[in-house]
Simulated assay, not measured.
Amino acid sequence: MFFDGTVRADGAGAGVVFMSPQRQILPYSFQLSELCSNNFAEYQTLIIGLQMAINMEITAFEVYGDSKLLTKYEVRKDDLVPYFRLATQLLQRFEAVTLEHVLRKENQMADVLANLASSMTLGEDEAADVPVCQRWVIPLITEILLDDINLISVLPVDVEEWRQLLIDYLEHGKLPDDHRHRSEIRRRAPRFLYYK
């Protein structure tokens, strides 16, 4: 389980990501109902994640967070002690659990989910399903508009640029003297159309 809590000026959020041994990912994002310090948000997130793991009947797992407060240091502020105690009690309910510190870059998904939740405005007892899909738009546009043909708009320029070599080949059949550039131009040219 990866977890991260975050606080912004307009809200606080929690991100929890469960990853199975088969690399199946279960991401969760929660808006925390009260503004708090970042340390409180981190503890809230850890506790939410542990409670979820208990509800899912997970008996052994590894927990990763980028907060050194939760994974390396002892609690020094009195107002955090109840959170520390609750987290400790929850951790004891598992047969085997490790709590480890990771770098922020290794905790990106939980961080993004926490930021998403902290930036959303939801009323009490409201929920929002936000699916995240991987897409890239440019190939779709070229399929619709050009049927997989690349189009270059050419404007007169004072300095030679990469497109000029393609234009010279497409318009006049002229290839550069350099053997490496010749092969590259021949390979790339069929993907372009030249309009005057």
Rank of each mutant, 00 (worst) to 15 (best):
L91G: 05
R104E: 04
E171G: 00
L145T: 05
R104T: 04
Y83R: 10
I47Y: 05
L80K: 05
L46G: 00
E143Y: 11
Y64V: 07
D158K: 15
V137M: 14
D147C: 06
L151W: 09
Y83P: 04
Q92A: 15
I149T: 12
E74V: 09
G123A: 09
G49L: 01
F61Y: 14
N115W: 00
N150W: 12
T121Q: 10
A117E: 04
P139Q: 08
R135G: 01
A41R: 03
Q164F: 10
F94A: 10
L70K: 03
Y43K: 04
E143C: 12
R93T: 09
Y64H: 15
F84P: 00
I47A: 08
Q164Y: 14
V159L: 10
V97D: 07
L99S: 03
E62T: 11
G123E: 09
N150T: 03
S119M: 00
T45R: 05
V63N: 05
I141E: 11
V81E: 11
E42F: 07
E74A: 13
S67P: 01
H172C: 05
L99V: 11
L91T: 01
L70G: 00
L86E: 10
D111V: 02
V132R: 06
L155R: 15
R85V: 11
L166S: 02
D148T: 11
M52H: 04
Y83I: 07
A117P: 03
Q51D: 09
L146N: 14
G49M: 02
L170G: 02
A117K: 03
A96E: 15
Y43W: 11
E106L: 14
L113M: 12
S153H: 14
L151M: 10
V97C: 15
Y83N: 07
P139I: 01
R104V: 01
I58T: 05
T71W: 12
L113W: 01
E126Y: 01
E62N: 14
L50T: 04
M52A: 03
E42A: 08
Y169T: 00
W136D: 01
L91D: 02
S153C: 09
L170E: 06
K105F: 13
D168A: 10
Q92N: 15
I48W: 07
A53K: 06
Q44D: 10
L151D: 05
L80Q: 04
N150S: 12
G123F: 01
E42D: 14
E95V: 08
N150K: 10
Y73T: 09
E100F: 05
T142S: 06
A114G: 08
L151F: 07
S118F: 00
D66S: 14
L155N: 14
P131E: 03
R93C: 14
L155Y: 14
I48N: 03
V75S: 13
L166G: 01
E126T: 00
T45I: 10
S67D: 09
